[in-house]
Design a protein around this nucleic acid. Structure first.
Lengths: 128, 128
DNA sequence: ATAAAGCCGACAAGAATTGTCGGCTTTTAA
DNA sequence: TTAAAAGCCGACAATTCTTGTCGGCTTTAT
């Protein structure tokens, strides 16, 4: 419970890597995976998901790779994590069915706290 | 990621159930599992773990069962969740190895936020 | 034209969660 | 004093989720 998935760890690290470069240059999967010690094939899937939600732009072919789609100060940790996780933060199965489930508030408050925290940090915060 | 485990859901529901009764009476696994729709055998393991950390007292034999070990206002959601989860909140594998991992703060802040939230709610808050 | 890259779907390995079972011990009440 | 009700415990089975891999395809710069 509340274990950070490798996917989010890798995704955030890759994005921080791109943010540190802060240029128009494209960086390849090979480069990122090498520098950040992320399994190549896994990273490919991750970047592809980040591209679908337009957090990065991809370019195929020689000299291709990925760049951030917008400035680091306009990308939050929440943008990245939400793109990679399907269960958006805390999700309690029983509460949905039971109107008066007394435990609902616990999970809901945690959900709010996590999202607020994630939202409060941008890539540019992280690299500064 | 950040999915609430059934174990914690069940554990918290069982504890809220006992807190609602708020008496010296013992309630059996059979009773709790029936009223709260929790698989009997699973609940047995859960209550046994809660007993080990002295959140509940157990009594064997006929008319046996479980009671809260202290007043509901002295048991927080964190007490319960911590007893049931081994990975205490957020735990990032890479950060441990890399001193200057720039993503570390993200996971650490979430960890703090979750724990603070869990700590802020007692069983008596939940049932009121 | 070719080589370097990303794209995509399928799937396999591993780990964690969730749930089950059988036999044991303790306790109460008839 | 014995039988039934209950908790205790360890092993294990089923299921689901995460993590990782693979093969073949498309695109693009040189």
């Amino acid at each position: 419970m509340f274990k950070v998935s490798k996917k989010s760890q890798y995704g955030l690290r890759a994005m921080v890597y791109l943010a540190k470069k802060d240029s128009k240059e494209f960086f390849s999967l090979k480069d990122i995976s090498g520098k950040e010690s992320i399994p190549f094939d896994f990273l490919e899937k991750i970047m592809s998901e980040l591209e679908k939600v337009k957090l990065v732009k991809a370019k195929k072919g020689i000299q291709g790779g990925y760049v951030l789609a917008r400035n680091p100060e306009r990308i939050t940790a929440k943008d990245i994590v939400s793109a990679l996780e399907n269960t958006t933060a805390v999700d309690c199965s029983f509460c949905g069915k039971s109107k008066k489930c007394l435990t609902k508030n616990v999970w809901r408050k945690i959900d709010v706290a996590i999202n607020k925290t994630l939202k409060s940090m941008t890539l540019s915060d992280l690299i500064s």
